[in-house]
């Protein structure tokens, strides 16, 4: 279980994450949603110990994220930021092999190679395993990084906006992969997503943040709800209930200003 206890991050006077308490038990896909600047990525980065919190404590299966030795934590928890610019040139296969570093310390065993091959196969990267990352499209590069995380073979996987810059098809493939990581490989995936509908369709649980705090937390059908979304995004979003679950109709919108929603107009969009 990931246990986030009173986590706070401040930059000067601005509080980006404000005393967040959150428990994420093992299993399933948990989505973090919220407006830009709500603190989702900052929170995820602190869980992934890419950022140091100003206050509070995060444990992963009882191991304090700040105090546990790097390699030990890296065998339990992997993290992927949204912009994955590499300062060096390397091939897809090489990148995926780096996912084994916490286990191998750089000397790959047969078992490591098995993991690498499986991760490459899992993300359909076989034909381009020898290609250099800088010669691939954004979607392929994203898949290579996910394969690296997969090869790292951790119980917990944190992904920060993995759909960023992906087109519809690659986004769908990536979400399928994330789903399979949870269903077939028994991993717990925490993912920051922009699109409420993608989150609703692919997650078991949605956590919504606003102004650095968790303001809604529940199943997709609980969170993708007109009143909840209005509170989270300050936007009146009609929700349509389809066979595939709730769908937020966020096109054709009407901004609410504080407590005076323009509710009367939304009827037009039904």
């Amino acid at each position: 279980m990931i246990d986030i206890d009173g986590i706070t991050k401040r930059y000067g006077k601005a509080t980006v994450v404000d005393r967040v308490n959150l428990q994420i038990p093992r299993g399933g896909v948990v989505s973090l949603i919220g407006a830009n600047g709500a603190g989702k990525s900052t929170l995820l980065s602190m869980v992934g110990r890419l950022l140091e919190p100003c206050d509070g404590r995060i444990t992963v299966d009882g191991h304090d994220v700040q105090a546990t030795p790097g390699p030990e934590l890296a065998r339990r928890l992997s993290v992927l930021r949204q912009e994955n610019h590499l300062p060096v040139r390397l091939a897809v296969g090489e990148l995926v092999a780096f996912g084994r570093f916490p286990h191998s310390g750089g000397r790959l065993s047969t078992r490591d190679h098995d993991h690498i091959d499986r991760a490459i196969a899992h993300l359909d990267l076989g034909p381009m395993a020898h290609r250099r990352l800088d010669q691939l499209s954004g979607g392929q590069r994203q898949r290579a990084f996910i394969a690296m995380v997969l090869a790292q073979d951790t119980d917990y996987v944190l992904l920060d906006e993995p759909l960023n810059t992906l087109d519809m098809r690659h986004a769908a493939q990536t979400m399928d992969t994330i789903r399979r990581m949870a269903d077939d490989l028994d991993k717990t995936v925490v993912v920051v997503l922009h699109d409420v509908n993608v989150a609703a369709h692919h997650s078991d649980r949605i956590v919504a943040m606003k102004h650095g705090r968790v303001v809604a937390d529940g199943s997709p059908s609980e969170v993708v709800d007109r009143d909840v979304l209005r509170h989270v995004f300050d936007l009146d979003v009609p929700v349509s209930h389809t066979d595939a679950g709730p769908v937020a109709m966020h096109f054709g919108r009407a901004c609410t200003s504080g407590d005076a929603p323009l509710a009367s107009r939304t009827g037009e969009f039904r």
Partner: peptide, 21 residues
Amino acid sequence: RTARLDVLALGRDTAVGLGVD
């Protein structure tokens, strides 16, 4: 420590994610 240096060369975030202090 060449293996660890290789990981370091991937950039801070990736290196931290792979367990390098």
